[in-house]
Design a protein around this nucleic acid. Structure first.
Lengths: 215, 215
DNA sequence: GTCTATAGACGGATAGAC
DNA sequence: GTCTATCCGTCTATAGAC
């Protein structure tokens, strides 16, 4: 969790490479992303990442210190929930919030630069503890909790957890297990199908229609 | 898929160990299950399994031939969907099928002898191809397709896929990522929350209530 | 049926030369 | 900033003794 002492602020989003320092670091990060995305944390080797980036394995250690830190650096998400959530909540009719949110999220996940992050985190979260924490924060304790809080409904944490489970299942089915037709479907079509479930979890009545006198 | 020629039928559920042949094989299988459940396929080593079972690593190879076959043997599910599905479909009011199914499945998954299989398959499916196929068959192409077929609704495959995604998300959230309060919730409570979503996927109207003139 | 021994290969991490 | 060399650990799988 403590920031590494290696390079303080070389986070220019790859725009304008500074003289004297070629983008070797960025190439290593790209190679790492691709490997983590396909093989997860355990399946990724520093040697393979280095080979794919055309550099020496020792250089990867020199830049990132350890495989763990390389993972954290490679899987950093490019969006901030706090910026997006408000416009999502108030960006249309409230009873279509679920559909809107799924469409936004799947469109984001489908982006060529984001998709490796999603599959990398999901794949690694299945077996690696820190990746699991990462996944939890990226969904249940992040944007979804923000949404359910913004909606002013009871049981915000429970709702965020339920929606997270549904969304994680969608990500798993679409990108990892590749269940058809979910894997090849357009974000909008998927949103139309799964949106109502997300909506019910986030803003709907959590008691089933035929409640038998409890609560 | 072809059964190994090592030992034909030593599957007595550990009751009555036959003379001359101790239940070493069963102990190895139990150790393998536990390890696959916690660390997935890649994280499990034959050496660790052997040590945990108190035998020699070579013996594991002798019994199962390879790590792959050990995995297949250890993750074999004890239930047959074809037997359970009909009683689930016709075992109560149809509009509560989703709740009934989730309650049944989560109760099954919670069983001490089944839970390792669930986590083992899910964890391994994230990074291993054969485990992913296994997961697909255990859900979307197995019981869920059977249900959606039995319900006589259109788009059976799509419905099975959607329900699978939701259920896989629940399994991931409850057993792997451990998102609270989902992880500690009773099967019935979870069924009351997620059942309606499953019901809509399997038997409900897949078009959102406010359809805008399509179909 | 169970073990020893070993082949054959790959892994993360480090020290230090250039 | 980049690489060579290497330590020390890991693993699956096999051959063969007992």
């Amino acid at each position: 969790m403590s920031p590494p002492a290696t390079s303080p602020a070389s986070q220019r989003t790859s725009r304008g490479r500074r003289p004297g320092a070629p983008d070797t670091r960025a190439e290593v990060l790209a190679a790492a992303r691709a490997s983590f995305a396909e093989k997860g944390f355990r399946g990724t080797t520093i040697r393979a990442v280095a080979a794919s980036a055309g550099v020496d394995p020792a250089l990867v250690h020199h830049y990132f210190g350890s495989k763990q830190r390389l993972f954290l650096a490679a899987m950093e998400f490019p969006i901030e929930p706090a910026v997006v959530i408000p416009s999502l909540v108030s960006g249309g009719p409230r009873d279509e919030l679920g559909r809107r949110f799924v469409a936004f999220l799947v469109t984001l996940w489908d982006r060529p630069d984001v998709r490796p992050l999603v599959t990398g985190v999901v794949r690694s979260a299945a077996t690696d503890a820190v990746a699991a924490t990462m996944a939890r924060r990226l969904l249940a304790e992040g944007p979804l909790l923000a949404i359910s809080n913004a909606l002013d409904v009871p049981d915000a944490a429970l709702r965020a957890a339920l929606a997270s489970a549904q969304l994680m299942g969608l990500a798993m089915a679409r990108y990892v297990i590749r269940i058809e037709p979910l894997a090849s479907m357009s974000p909008e079509a998927l949103a139309a199908l799964a949106g109502p479930s997300i909506h019910r979890y986030l803003a709907g009545d959590l008691e089933p229609p035929k409640a038998d006198g409890r609560g």
